[in-house]
Design a protein around this nucleic acid. Structure first.
Lengths: 205, 205
DNA sequence: GGGGGCCTCCACCGATCGGTGGAGTCGACG
DNA sequence: CGTCGACTCCACCGATCGGTGGAGGCCCCC
């Protein structure tokens, strides 16, 4: 019997996962949680074999909750659900120790088979997500932005000029331009607007 | 007995709505659909009292599907579900004739009560969404952009300079700037980057 | 026929941005 | 302890952008 904890902030999604899994032989839903912190606490209390978790939740996001659960409970595996194929948190969640990553749009069989695979110690990835991971590996530039570069880029997205950004971040305008030039370089673009839209597409912003 | 059709492209969400509603006395789920077109077809075939529909679906988006269903089946009402409070399609769906708009994060009771309300001919709105509607009504400018202005803005989002945009659209650079200035005015911003991000937030792009 | 959008274009200006080519401090990591 | 990455700053330049203040043509609707 695979004991499963379900964590999702959306009541209907939670009910859906429970409905799909609880009917299946060999799978038992032992608990539910509505946010990331509750997921960690319930996992600690129930010690399930598997946590099926939404990647975006209030409290603690999926990757943070995954890391905590993996650190405290070596016997508990994590299967992440996501809405979007191109979610920037995919990498983070996998690095945090998630054993699987499925799309919410996936058919019921894929979810059930994913649960069984992960419980067996295997990895479960939706095809679209697997493709994305491969693409990332092929991409020469991981295009990861430093915290400061993200600060600057967020203010650019808000429509601030370089001078205003400098004032807001308590740095010189020249520094803002330096950060921005690095951002352009990393993203392979030549202007601030495209940098913002591309960062949004990649989920960096 | 309220006969309900459930439409959502996410299998788990669909299962969740069905699980929550089917157990309730007086509510019967008579069908399901995985995209907007299928929702319209199933509604035509099943003639349910109510369609519970995700706002974002492949095929036809929630608002388009709502409009078609309302046009063809006067006896069928539509209740829209959404993930985000600030979804730009809220207005469109309500204009298309939806009788309710609930958040997926809403508790099960709210969803069930929403279904009953809408079936009675009332309107069901999540508090957060109701607040948003009021805010919109207070906003003086509806901020609609002309087709040409959207053409220009899309190219701005792609990172093109004004000159390049002019070349692509076979118009002068001066014309591009004219369009852009109108866009800034309509959106109440002062630079191209913020114009793009705001347009994306509002679903104009 | 007379508005009223919408689209097109022009000249001109100051402000801002993109880009170059530096340089220094600091903390982390091996 | 050396190195590397992240962050900070400077001066300078040409290109682009934001903004002003026009103008005319087109089409649709009243």
């Amino acid at each position: 019997m695979i004991r499963v904890l379900v964590a999702d902030d959306h009541a209907v999604v939670r009910a859906g996962i429970v409905a799909l899994l609880d009917d299946v032989d060999g799978i038992e839903v032992v608990g539910q949680a509505a946010d990331g912190l509750a997921a960690v606490e319930e996992a600690r209390r129930l010690r399930p074999d598997l946590v099926v978790m939404d990647v975006r939740m209030p409290g603690a996001t999926g990757d943070v909750a995954t890391a905590r659960i993996r650190a405290e409970l070596p016997g508990t595996r994590v299967l992440i659900l996501t809405t979007y194929e191109s979610d920037s948190t995919i990498i983070a969640a996998i690095e945090a120790g998630a054993s699987g990553y499925l799309l919410k749009a996936a058919p019921a069989e894929e979810l059930i088979e994913g649960v069984r695979s992960v419980a067996r110690g295997e990895t479960a990835l939706s095809p679209a997500i697997a493709a994305q991971l491969v693409a990332r590996l092929r991409a020469p530039a991981p295009a990861e932005l430093t915290p400061r570069e993200l600060d600057v880029l967020r203010l650019v997205a808000a429509g601030c000029s370089n001078r205003v950004i400098g004032e807001r971040l308590f740095i010189g305008e020249a520094t803002v331009k330096s950060h921005l030039l690095r951002v352009f370089e990393k993203l392979g673009v030549h202007d601030r607007t495209r940098a913002v839209t591309l960062a949004m597409e990649r989920g960096l912003l």
